[in-house]
């Protein structure tokens, strides 16, 4: 079986350079590639464009990259909960493109399915539609939204095998599957890396064909943004 295994996050990200466009999986802090983010911060690459649903919190997730001023532009759907992000945005240090969450998912999906663009009704009649082609199908208006082009996609899965097959747990699947399919080069970090044959082919969420590098991460903090318990 084709072997995608690399040693660690440092090796996985070794050819990411200043000015690259990265997709980063996760929703809030759930299912984010913690090991690769740490390695990117350590490497100190700058002027990155990051496509990610959220921008982390001040001291975790993509927030760590924002602290080091490594991000030139964020493409996200929701960026609340991050004071440093807001400061950089209002001061003009950071360029931000806010897009509807479904549009973010579909533009990843389009890239992973080899489709140049999709049509969505999200954003019709709003500032999101400015400058975009509108088409009417069956009496309803839709915006033309193009597939993303990202040099790298970085995702985090629960389990994976060295062939690159991935399985996700609970709601940590979120953007990880579609981003995994969308990167020109896709890096997957997993909590548990096993040999081919140890994962049930019936349960695979992303087939290894989409994955270029895989490694077993370590020391996952899995921080919870809003721990809420029933009384």
């Amino acid at each position: 079986m084709i072997n995608k295994k690399v040693a660690n996050a440092e090796e996985a990200i070794s050819d990411i350079k200043d000015g690259d466009t990265l997709m980063l999986g996760g929703f809030g802090l759930c299912g984010i590639p913690e090991n690769c983010i740490a390695a990117l911060v350590k490497k100190g690459i700058k002027n990155l464009t990051c496509i990610s649903n959220n921008a982390g919190v001040d001291d975790f997730g993509i927030g760590l990259m924002l602290q080091q001023k490594q991000v030139k532009k964020m493409v996200s759907s929701y960026v609340g909960e991050n004071a440093e992000f807001e400061r950089q945005l209002l001061s003009g240090e950071l360029d931000v493109e806010l897009i509807p969450q479904g549009t973010l998912a579909f533009r990843c999906m389009a890239a992973g399915y080899g489709m140049p663009a999709i049509f969505t009704p999200a954003g019709i009649g709003t500032e999101v539609a400015i400058g975009k082609e509108v088409r009417n199908f069956n009496g309803k208006d839709y915006l033309l939204e193009k597939a993303f082009e990202a040099n790298f996609a970085i995702v985090k899965a629960w389990k994976g095998d060295t062939a690159g097959n991935l399985i996700f747990k609970a709601t940590s699947r979120n953007f990880n599957t579609v981003m995994a399919m969308a990167g020109k080069i896709t890096i997957a970090e997993v909590e548990e890396l096993v040999a081919p044959g140890e994962l049930d082919p019936n349960q695979i969420h992303v087939p290894g064909v989409y994955i270029h590098r895989i490694f077993q991460g370590s020391d996952y903090e899995k921080r919870i943004e809003k721990k809420t318990v029933s009384k």
Binding site: S77, P100, V128
Partner: peptide, 13 residues
């Protein structure tokens, strides 16, 4: 500016 999240999708459909 917090962003629209999924709201624009939900209200469109």
């Amino acid at each position: 500016v917090k962003g629209m999240g999924g709201a624009m999708d939900l209200v469109a459909s």
